[in-house]
Nucleic acid binder design. Structure first.
Lengths: 191, 191
DNA sequence: AGATTAATTCAACGCTTGTAGAACTCAACA
DNA sequence: TGTTGAGTTCTACAAGCGTTGAATTAATCT
């Protein structure tokens, strides 16, 4: 079974490995995800993973290449003025998390933030630069940065409970309900 | 150095091990914390850890024995009526997290929730039973449980960012400020 | 057709980990 | 004082990990 040497036919194994890696990192976090497990998920020898992506940390970095452009994000959030920013950011947040394709790298990043320095840095950079830096400059009032950071903390808290830990009272609720409930509170941080 | 056999003098090594374990689990999470590292922290042989606490997961379970009685907590939060519940719960939350002694097991639990099934269960049980079950019954309005869960998610989000990840915009702010800012939003979930 | 390069697997090394059991040393009590 | 038992360390095993270099097969280029 599975002869050695190059496989016949076309090949996009690299993408298969990356997908398997995202799934594994998202499901188990950085530490518990193993290169051997990822290789098995891609139906490939472990050495091939290393051949394409180098070290495990390199592979992780490639796995959390986020499906979001921070600069666009800030613009979209503020597009309809400050008074709609709360609902906008909440809606975009949940839309991205509910889509399985975009959820995988986000989950990998969020879980990885607890395991590896790099994961924490990416999360800091992403939310720090994207949200705080850009959005905070556009909302009124003093010490906008703290208030935006608190809004972000609410969003992340819900992501942790709903998507990582499967907290029942939050996992069972339809997203629309969460958006309706949370938007006003997020908005109140922006006022 | 460190001859074999029993040490002279009185002995409360068990407590030393537990403290070292809490510190290590709090700092690194379940996976990255090693029994050897914990033993070193307690200036003790790794086998002794196993002798006192059994398997690593048993030790972890002992390490997250929380310094809070859920039943008392709910009562304290609601003691002055619903209209003070938001500020009360926020204050208690931060007070507990700011005290290094009570912070260690909380951190261990929070980090462990991502690594081990048991950690997630404890967190679910703790916040689920303590907060949702008890508090939700005491606040007015429909679907109180969802709203309490959202309030909890905000608190946990801030704990993750401030105490686990060291998110600068939240770590550098004095607690009083956070309490002032967050209490109204938490309260608005209870109204 | 031959040579070169890319894709893939094989086999193995070195390390760290959790855990187990035997051995040693002191304290407590008869 | 002698014996038992608890405290403590030593040594070791078995498993899993990330990683490496060489070998094998297929595609591609001349």
């Amino acid at each position: 079974m599975a002869r050695s040497g190059r496989r016949p036919g076309a090949t996009d194994t690299r993408a298969a490995i990356l997908t398997a890696a995202q799934a594994e990192f998202a499901a188990k976090g950085y530490d518990r995800a193993t290169i051997r497990g990822i290789a098995a998920g891609a139906k490939v020898d472990p050495a091939l993973v290393h051949h394409y992506f180098g070290t495990k940390e390199d592979l992780f970095a490639a796995s959390i290449d986020l499906p979001i452009r921070p600069s666009e994000l800030a613009d979209t959030v503020m597009a309809e003025g400050v008074e709609s920013a709360g609902r906008n950011i909440t809606t975009i947040f949940f839309t991205t998390w509910e889509n399985p394709v975009t959820r995988a790298p986000l989950l990998a990043m969020l879980r990885g933030a607890f395991d590896t320095r790099h994961g924490a840095d990416v999360l800091r950079e992403f939310f720090g630069t994207a949200m705080l830096g850009r959005v905070a400059g556009l909302i009124p009032g003093p010490e906008a940065e703290i208030r935006v950071a608190l809004a972000v903390s609410h969003l992340i808290g819900v992501a942790v409970l709903r998507y990582v830990l499967g907290f029942p009272s939050l996992s069972d609720v339809p997203v629309a309900r969460l958006i309706d409930e949370m938007s006003p509170k997020i908005q109140s941080y922006f006022a």
